[in-house]
């Protein structure tokens, strides 16, 4: 039984049919990536998993639960957290308060303190900036904060929407290294990326999305070597 199992997901924005029957699954411990061009429906998929959008029809099963009936906060409490596209940190809360908001669903003071230390160990820059307003951070620092804030939820499944967007090449490397580290510590990841090369490089499996449909599904390595993928997404 997969950790997350999506079947025949259909999502509309008004009359726009954005997801046209997507099916995919994520096994516990995996990094699964979702790649595709602009407007393919990657963010829509993640937003639907998080409960911000409702499918009609479609099913999302996670640990025997049907997520499509739960409000977004209950989905987080079930163990799924999303780092949304564009970071969406709270600009007028301090870095520390942003991280506290990540721990909102939790009551275990010790565990929270330990996770805060881990986040600071992962992103030493955040410790230096702890009392600074989130909105005053640079783009890269905001991305670190967004990931750190989500880690404070201590999710079982972390959804990442284009974490490398707009970052300098060395920072992209750094973020991908950290993503792998998070996975090695036991968090399952569903990673949406434009940077197909990097994403397929670290993913166990991947799905290619085209205008609301899954067109390819395979292991990360196989997709990297797939001629269609190389042509369309890797520019080769």
């Amino acid at each position: 039984m997969a950790l997350l199992e999506i079947e025949n997901l259909n999502v509309y924005y008004g009359a726009i049919h954005a997801l046209k029957g997507i099916s995919l699954r994520v096994e516990a411990g995996e990094i699964v990536t979702l790649i595709g061009a602009n407007g393919a429906g990657k963010s829509t998929t993640l937003r639907t998993i998080s409960g911000l959008l409702r499918p009609r029809p479609g099913s999302i099963r996670y640990e025997q639960q049907d997520l499509t009936r739960l409000p977004p906060d209950a989905i987080v409490r079930a163990g799924i957290c999303q780092v949304p596209e564009g970071r969406r940190i709270f600009p007028n809360l301090t870095v520390l308060e942003n991280l506290e908001m990540g721990a909102y669903t939790r009551r275990d003071r010790r565990g929270i303190a330990a996770d805060l230390e881990q986040v600071f160990a992962l992103f030493p820059r955040l410790r230096e900036r702890a009392r600074q307003m989130g909105g005053t951070l640079s783009g890269g620092e905001q991305q670190m904060l967004a990931i750190g804030r989500a880690l404070m939820v201590r999710p079982k499944l972390l959804l990442l929407d284009e974490p490398s967007l707009g970052l300098a090449p060395f920072l992209v490397q750094e973020i991908f290294r950290i993503i792998q580290e998070i996975n090695q510590r036991g968090t399952t990841l569903l990673l949406v990326e434009q940077n197909a090369h990097m994403a397929l490089g670290i993913a166990h499996r991947g799905y290619v999305l085209e205008t609301g449909r899954v067109t390819l599904a395979d292991t990360g390595a196989a997709l990297l070597n797939n001629p269609e993928v190389r042509h369309a997404y890797l520019g080769q």
Binding site: P71, D73, P84, Y104, T105, R149, V153
Partner: peptide
């Protein structure tokens, strides 16, 4: 929306 994504019961 970001508050929702952090599990805050909006």
């Amino acid at each position: 929306e970001a508050a929702y994504l952090m599990g805050i019961p909006v």
